[in-house]
Simulated scan of single mutants.
Amino acid sequence: MISKSVIVTGASRGIGRAIAIQFAKAGYHVAINCNTNADLLENVKQEITSYGVHCISYVGNIGEEEHAMKLCSNTIEAFGHVDVLINNAGISHIGLLSDLSLAEWNSIVTTNLTSVFLCSKGVTPNMVQQKSGRIINISSVWGIAGASCEVAYSATKGGINSFTKALAKELAPSNIQVNAIACGAIDTEMNQFLSTEDREELENEIPSGRFGKVEEVAEFVYAIATGSTYLTGQIIPFDGAWL
């Protein structure tokens, strides 16, 4: 029996870490990536291998072609193939558009959107060759609705949504499914800037009455990755009925 493998970008913490561990528990060999947090990534690697699977790690900005292609080629060299790609790497920026510099804009676009393009491009030939594969992009409800003071972030997530729909149509004949999960308020470090009062106010806006957990996102990602091959080209909200 051929062991399956998964690439998880932005896996040093939060949603990416939880996803990587979820797949490791299920017996997948795992390739993990982060931009700068090498020590945190090494901790995740050690936890993954404790489940009896192999893990490779790669530190680098996968919004840059050299690093994205290296991550993908290293994975194929180590495991022979890629079954699942989870495009999770992302950063946010809070502030008015008028205060957003071009450098900040470019940084968000590179990290959030260009990385999705490059990593998807990196694994597609291998998936086409084996006539199977799953690409799951971690998006946001702001990619659907837009958020004030998060114009750049919203734009990149909206771009991911359109990218997902288009690539799904392109790859469906090769039995490769492409979907995106539009996350709502998830309890991650990205949301730690909220004061206790702001957090409570936001929780009151969410019909489910709470933030989602990273483990819940991971379980949902795994369910999509192992579910029906007829599910493709979808942007699936995961937001507790918030929006």
Rank of each mutant, 00 (worst) to 15 (best):
S3H: 02
V6T: 01
V8W: 10
A11R: 08
R13Q: 14
G14L: 08
K25T: 11
N33F: 07
D39T: 12
L40C: 09
V44P: 09
Q46T: 15
E47M: 10
I48Y: 11
I48M: 12
C55T: 11
Y58V: 08
G63S: 13
E64L: 15
E65I: 14
E65S: 14
E66C: 03
H67P: 01
L71D: 10
C72K: 00
N74H: 07
T75C: 05
I76L: 02
I76K: 07
A78F: 03
F79H: 01
N87Q: 03
A89E: 06
S92D: 10
H93F: 09
I94E: 02
L97N: 07
S101N: 04
A103D: 15
S107C: 09
Q129Y: 05
Q130L: 03
G133D: 00
I135S: 01
S140V: 10
G146A: 10
C149G: 00
C149I: 00
A152N: 06
K157C: 14
N161R: 05
N161T: 09
F163P: 01
T164N: 02
A166D: 05
L167Q: 03
A182S: 15
C183Q: 14
G184H: 12
N191P: 13
L194K: 10
S195G: 05
E200G: 04
P207Y: 12
S208M: 15
F211K: 11
G212C: 15
V214Y: 01
A218V: 11
I224N: 02
S228K: 08
S228T: 15
S228V: 08
I235P: 07
G240N: 07
